[in-house]
Nucleic acid binder design. Sequence first.
DNA 1: TTGAAAGCGCTAACAC
DNA 2: GTGTTAGCGCTTTCAA
Lengths: 339, 339
Amino acid sequence: MITLKNLAERLNVSISTVSKALSDSDEISKETISRVKKLAGELNYQPNRVALSLKQNKTKTVGVIIPNILNRFFAMALYGIQNEATKLGYSIITCITNEQLVKEQESISLLSNGSVDGFIIAVSEETLLSSRIQHLQTLSEKRIPMIMFDRNLNDIECNKVIINDFKAAHEVTNMLINRGKKQIAFISTINDLNVGALRRIGYENAIKMSVLPDLNPMYLFIKKEDDYQGLIKNFLINNPNIDAIIAADNITGTITVNVAINMGYDIPKDISLIGFTDEVVSNLSIPKLSYIDQNAETIGENALRLLVNELNNKDLDNAYSTLKIPFTIVHKETTRSSI
Amino acid sequence: MITLKNLAERLNVSISTVSKALSDSDEISKETISRVKKLAGELNYQPNRVALSLKQNKTKTVGVIIPNILNRFFAMALYGIQNEATKLGYSIITCITNEQLVKEQESISLLSNGSVDGFIIAVSEETLLSSRIQHLQTLSEKRIPMIMFDRNLNDIECNKVIINDFKAAHEVTNMLINRGKKQIAFISTINDLNVGALRRIGYENAIKMSVLPDLNPMYLFIKKEDDYQGLIKNFLINNPNIDAIIAADNITGTITVNVAINMGYDIPKDISLIGFTDEVVSNLSIPKLSYIDQNAETIGENALRLLVNELNNKDLDNAYSTLKIPFTIVHKETTRSSI
DNA sequence: TTGAAAGCGCTAACAC
DNA sequence: GTGTTAGCGCTTTCAA
């Protein structure tokens, strides 16, 4: 790598002159500035990032901690974070915790050695379940800028970016009720997560608040290691009166369409379906699954933007807030409105 | 952050004494060592990463450039890279190029300012198609350690990690031939990529080398923006004699199962299917899709390991090599062997 | 208009 | 056994 020192030697000027010239200081003569810039351009000089970080005591790097990169929601959020970071001149160091508390603790500890200026975190499932949040509380106490997204811990004070999961589930449930559905079931593999619980409660709440007297909630909770197809099939067999299903996670909606079709159901005539997923997954079933788009990319962008904002105003003692990103209900083929 | 200077002041010793004590130098007395370590432990001292990087002229950070994080192959490879990096004490900075040449160039340029010690790259589709590889050649010429994986550029000299795509396609095609399939079709959305082409050629080659006289290749090439379901449906209608299909990419296998089922085919009795994908996607169709597992995580791990190896032996002038990671054929329900 | 010097946090050669 | 010093690449204050 070419350094200021190299340039200074070649030009027979001092290092500080070169430094000032490159930043268009008016202490330096026009002529020197152009000489310096010319050579810097020719040699493709780039200021050493590490030296700058040390000098300015900020790395312009953000630590991003996510539970699972195979989950499309987090993958898209990461993409949003990354894009926005590039725009604002930041780099990101990503750590994937694989839903494990230990890895989350290690990642944060690892990056707390001056590697990053702040964190964007979606906590792991194990963290949520165990409520062992000392590592996050420490960050908060040290006033290290941090944004939590999607999975929210009420006990941690920091800025947050989420979607209104309660409202989303509530809204689609109401929509199904308004379309005359009598037995709306709720399938979830993420009931342990707070987002999963919020979706369930939104669903429950809409059912209970309905003016129709005979509506009752009906659930199928699936564990990660279970046989999804088998459980869903049994569920449908045991509950032949189901006429609508809300899938709380990324993939059970698709699997449910496949299972129902395989069992001979006419979708959406017999059963309407909607999931929390995205366009690509929607195309993986026939008929195509309707879905609630969580706008993951937007969530990521906003998380990064909020963090950078916090970094730039570290001295100001602003109150923390929670940003709710709007969701979008996308009607494909499993909730045709004519039915 | 707590620094050596802080510790030194509190202990009334010099900075270098603290530094040496923390690294168990035998220049320092046992007693001093334990005093220093005690305080360092209490205050949770962590050596400043940035200062270390500057001093040692290496960042222990790797730049990872991948085309698309929503592609499960790259997501899993990234996970493998990340895991192995953590084990070896490295961090990774990830850049997602979204298959765009410009973003790839920018990412590399951005990280070439001393941010990383080396690169792991899967080049973008646009780079492959345009053959504009100056940015990679520059890295190579500057002797910046770099590993290419999955998508291979023959013109770039560096260490590479790939799977034997030719052999994988060749092998499954032969398997289908041996099972008596007469009309094996090949569906691909990635014919533009070299991995896609290798899979196609492996398929072609197996067909042509077959001792059976009446075998002929048959293709459906789909573009990203096309209507997958519609094209596949037409393809099946127009070619009613197809009795086996190889899908070259991640998702068309699943879509093909769904389309065929929807058209009334009995799978795998009427048509055997196999794709290049993974366990989770396999579960998204009924019957479950058989697949060629590319062992993406292993690819990632090996890429990282090779890179670190190269970094540690930068002085030695080793020849470049290409590591081929074994693939695994996983028989699920769409290639039942009894048929 | 230019240069010298200090300092960010750390290591290591050298001095005491 | 401990301390002083230089230097990694850079910015910035102060001196010339």
